[in-house]
C-alpha cells in the first residue's frame, strides 16, 4: 500500500499551535504543532509517555497547556477514554444519555435517543436496562461510544479506547468506529500505541516521538480506509516501518525490526 505524504489540509477542525506542557521539570510536549483535518479520522501513534493523551486532554479542555494555544472550530467535542468511565450506579441507557442530560435534554427524549443508539451499536434491547457491572468489557466500551456519539459531536476524541479488550473484540470495535466516522462524517482523533490498529482505522496517520512529544512522521494512504483489508494493512505496516523516522520513533533498532522489508 502506498503512503501519500500529502500536506495537512487547509481546513482544519482542530489545531495545536506550539503547545508545550510540562509536569514538574519533565517536558511532556515541547512546542508541538499539529492540525486535524475537518472530516476523516486522524490517528496519533506513539510510544508510552510521548504526550498523546495530553494532547487530547488539551483539546477536550481538561488541561491548559503551559505555552501555546489550541484552536478548534468544533462546537461539540466528545471524548472517549481508555476505560469506559461509566457511572456504576446508572443503567447503560442512562450512561449513554449522560452527555444529553448535561445539555438539558428532557428525560424521556434523551433515554429514547440513547436506547436507539445503543441498539445501533450492537447491544441487545434489554442491555439498556443493565448496570455496567452486568456488561462485558466490550459492551461497556460500546456504551461509552454511544455516550460520546449521543451528543452528535463534530469532533470525536478517542484515547486508546480498546486497550483492555481482546483482539477479536478490538477488531469489531475498530470497524464500528470506522463505520461511524464514515457514516456521520464526523472528524475524529484516535490515539493508540498500536500501529496496526492505527492503519486499520485512519484516514491520516501521525507518528509521534518523545518524550517530549513531537511529530516524527505524518502520512495519508492512497487507498481509502473503508476499502483496506488485512493485506492492505500489512502492506501499510511494511511501508511505514521502512521509514527511518517511524522506526526510530517507535523504538525499533535496526537488527530487531518486527516487520522487515
Amino acid at each position: 500500500m502506498t503512503l501519500t505524504p500529502t500536506p495537512d489540509a487547509a481546513a482544519s477542525v482542530l489545531a495545536w499551535h506550539d503547545v508545550s506542557v510540562s509536569i514538574g521539570r519533565t517536558a511532556i510536549l515541547d512546542r508541538l504543532t499539529l492540525a486535524v483535518p475537518a472530516g476523516g479520522l486522524l490517528t496519533l501513534v506513539g510510544p508510552s509517555g510521548c504526550g498523546k493523551t495530553t494532547l487530547l486532554s488539551i483539546a477536550a479542555g481538561l488541561l491548559k497547556p503551559g505555552a501555546g494555544r489550541v484552536e478548534t472550530r468544533a462546537r461539540r467535542i466528545a471524548l472517549m477514554f481508555q476505560d469506559s468511565r461509566l457511572l456504576p450506579w446508572r443503567r447503560a441507557r442512562d450512561n449513554a444519555a449522560f452527555g444529553l442530560r448535561c445539555q438539558g435534554m428532557p428525560r424521556r427524549q434523551r433515554l429514547d435517543a440513547a436506547q436507539r443508539l445503543l441498539e445501533s451499536l450492537g447491544l441487545a434491547p434489554e442491555d439498556g436496562d443493565k448496570f455496567p457491572h452486568q456488561l462485558s468489557g466490550g459492551m461497556r466500551q460500546r456504551v461509552a461510544l454511544a455516550r460520546a456519539l449521543a451528543i452528535e459531536p463534530d469532533l470525536l476524541l478517542l484515547d486508546e479506547p480498546f486497550n483492555a479488550l481482546d483482539s477479536v473484540l478490538r477488531r469489531d470495535l475498530q470497524d464500528l468506529v470506522r463505520q461511524t466516522v464514515t457514516a456521520r462524517g464526523v472528524a475524529a482523533v484516535f490515539v493508540t500505541h498500536d500501529l496496526t490498529e492505527a492503519i486499520r482505522v485512519c484516514d491520516r496517520l501521525v507518528v509521534m516521538a518523545g518524550p517530549p512529544g513531537r511529530v516524527a512522521f505524518s502520512t495519508g494512504f492512497a487507498q481509502p480506509a473503508d476499502a483496506r483489508d488485512d493485506a492492505a494493512v500489512l502492506a501499510g505496516l511494511q511501508a511505514l516501518w521502512r521509514e527511518p523516522a517511524v522506526a526510530e520513533a517507535l523504538g525499533a533498532t535496526p537488527g530487531r525490526r518486527r516487520v522487515t522489508a
Binding site: I77, A78, L79, R85, F98, G99, R101, C102, R147
Partner: peptide, 21 residues
C-alpha cells in the same frame, strides 16, 4: 477523579455532577 474528568469533558453542570456522581 477519572469519572469527574469524564463529567468535565461532557461539560456537566454542577447540579448533574451532584445528583449523578
Amino acid at each position: 477523579g477519572e469519572v469527574l474528568d469524564m463529567a468535565r469533558a461532557f461539560r456537566a453542570p454542577l447540579g448533574v455532577r451532584i445528583v449523578d456522581i
